[in-house]
Design a binder for these strands. Structure first.
Lengths: 213, 213
DNA sequence: CACTATACGGAACTCAGGTTCCGATTGCGT
DNA sequence: ACGCAATCGGAACCTGAGTTCCGTATAGTG
């Protein structure tokens, strides 16, 4: 495209991305995909060498795209959080609040049960600072979902978004790949939890400790 | 190696235990205690050096008593399983079946929430072969507890001992030390689960996949 | 009190897994 | 087609954690 003087486009913004060779971009995707697979199956201790091999790429290439294992991890974790947040927002569109919540839980559970990285990333308090923003967005969407489900009176009123996160995290870690009974599907676990979330007249939950906004 | 004919090699009963120096026995206990603490706090990746230091003992001493990290781990895991099994049997004495189960769950949850090793040991399917027997004993006791609680009609009939294990494992891993919200006590999580286990008229659970005897 | 088998401490070794480096390749503007 | 800079591959390097080894210290015994 000729740089016509009228090209009002291309303002001062230091467009960083564009001068990247095609193969580089392609390899980046490969690495990402391979890493997703390895981390899903083996959790945090998947190995860089394996990822490189799975991506059919040298280790050096992995490191050129992601300066460190941690960075790669965070990129993927952020990815997951974003997807979950999207699902949560979609669920907000559902006609019924309670149904919407359940759908969201179902999708999350399935994802979590098949991706060790997700539940491990969700669990560790300190690590994954890089994906903190995305995580918070997810929590916000979840909170909205929770409130809507409580408005109709179906979801116990004491529940908060934190509770949901905690429960789904437990589900992932108990039923995920490599866990003691991955075959026994996450669906049983989820069904029990959902029943517990809705239960009408049971004794109130112990108070949550100083909910951070 | 010469099979010396006179070397009758001690009588058949290889009484291993008794000729052990007093300090050796004492140190063994120290190591065990220190290891318990370290593993509880840091899970499987607690380090031998730290355990030795905490026990105020040299690394060599740790290895003289336990040939390998794995061995130490298994000794401790077995320990935990045994204690849980005892608790389960105690709970069988409770006047009410459902109450007994809940008491057991409460004690297990508290232990699990404060001991990363426990839930990690419970989860890993392959590892910890050494503690397999103890684990099975626990599962049996749990099964008895479950049946009794179902007899009175309070516990949902589809629940099995495996479900309990899975749930408690998730609880431990979601609320344990180092997890994303250890402060948010395990009690909330447990309350939700208990509600879910009892829930009367909710939709039936998806079927368990080929329960191993 | 002397003697020896038992136990101890901790430096040194080994190995695994993350990270770096650099010569060989290869996309792409001219 | 040419040439340079962006990329690549993967051997080499570094660090951390489990394990081994051996000279020294000590409980227990005659």
């Amino acid at each position: 495209m000729a740089a016509s003087p009228t090209k009002t486009q291309a303002p001062p913004a230091p467009e960083v991305e564009r001068t990247q060779r095609a193969d580089a971009r392609r390899n980046r995707e490969r690495v990402l995909a391979a890493a997703r697979g390895q981390f899903a199956a083996n959790g945090l201790d998947a190995q860089i060498d394996d990822i490189a091999r799975a991506a059919d790429v040298g280790v050096g290439t992995v490191y050129r795209h992601f300066p460190t294992k941690e960075a790669l991890l965070e990129a993927l974790a952020a990815d997951r959080f974003i997807r979950l947040a999207e699902w949560a927002r979609e669920a907000l569109e559902a006609p019924d609040g309670w149904e919407g919540l359940c759908d969201f839980l179902r999708r999350s559970a399935e994802l979590g049960a098949n991706d060790r990285l997700l539940s491990e990333a969700m669990a560790e308090r300190d690590a994954f600072q890089g994906a903190q923003g995305e995580k918070e967005e997810l929590m916000e969407a979840t909170a909205a979902l929770v409130e809507r489900a409580q408005a109709t009176g179906e979801l116990r009123p004491e529940i908060g978004a934190q509770d949901i996160a905690m429960l789904m995290c437990g589900l992932g870690r108990a039923t995920g790949p490599g866990s003691f009974d991955h075959a026994m599907s996450w669906e049983r676990y989820l069904a029990i939890i959902i029943a517990g979330l809705r239960a009408p007249g049971s004794s109130p939950l112990p108070p949550p400790p100083a909910e951070p906004t």
